[in-house]
Amino acid sequence: MIQHVYIRPTGFAPGPQSEHGNAIRLAGTMVYASRFAVILRRGGDVVERWLASPDTIDEVMGQLPDEIGADAEEQWANLTLAHPPMQLGERSIALDQPQVMGILNVTPDSFSDGGRFLDDREAGRDHAAAMVEAGAAILDIGGESTRPGAKPLWEGDEIERVVPAIEACSAMGAAISIDTRKAAVMQAALEAGAHLVNDVSGLAHDPRSAEVVAEAGCPVVLMHAPGGAGEDLHSGADYDNVVFDVFDALRARRDAALAAGIDKGNILLDVGIGFGKSLGENLALINALPLFHALGHPLLFGASRKRMIGALSKEAPVEDRLGGSIALALEAMRGGAQVVRVHDVAETVQARNVWRGLRDAALTDFSDLPG
Rank of each mutant, 00 (worst) to 15 (best):
K277Y: 09
A259S: 11
H234Y: 03
F292E: 02
A294T: 03
P290Q: 00
S177L: 10
S170T: 12
G265R: 13
G202H: 01
K264F: 08
L269W: 13
P207D: 12
L283A: 11
V163L: 13
G280Y: 09
M223P: 06
D238E: 15
D248C: 03
E215H: 12
G272S: 13
D245K: 10
S278D: 05
A204T: 14
H224N: 08
A260H: 10
E281N: 09
F244H: 15
H234K: 03
K182W: 10
C218P: 06
G228C: 00
I267V: 15
D240T: 14
H205P: 12
V242K: 02
L285G: 05
H195R: 03
F244W: 14
F247P: 00
V212Y: 05
A294K: 03
S278P: 01
N266Q: 15
L289H: 04
R253I: 00
R161S: 11
D199M: 04
N241T: 13
A184K: 14
A225C: 11
G265S: 14
D248S: 14
T180M: 11
L291S: 00
H234R: 03
N266D: 15
V242D: 01
A210L: 10
T180I: 07
D199H: 04
E167H: 05
A237D: 07
H195K: 03
V162I: 15
G173E: 07
C169F: 04
A210P: 05
V246R: 02
D255I: 00
V162H: 12
E167P: 06
L269F: 10
L291Q: 00
V221S: 01
K277D: 07
C169A: 15
G265F: 12
A183L: 05
I176D: 06
D206M: 06
S278E: 02
F247C: 08
H224I: 03
M223R: 04
V212S: 04
A257F: 00
H293T: 09
F247T: 05
H205M: 11
D206G: 06
I178Q: 04
A189L: 02
A229R: 15
I267K: 12
L285D: 02
L190Y: 04
D263S: 14
A259V: 00
S235C: 06
R253S: 12
S209G: 14
L268M: 14
E231A: 14
A260P: 14
G217P: 09
A284G: 01
V213P: 02
L269C: 10
D263G: 13
A225F: 06
E281A: 09
V242W: 01
R251H: 06
L203Q: 04
F292V: 05
A216D: 11
D238K: 10
S201G: 06
P219Q: 09
A284K: 08
F247V: 03
D270P: 08
V243A: 10
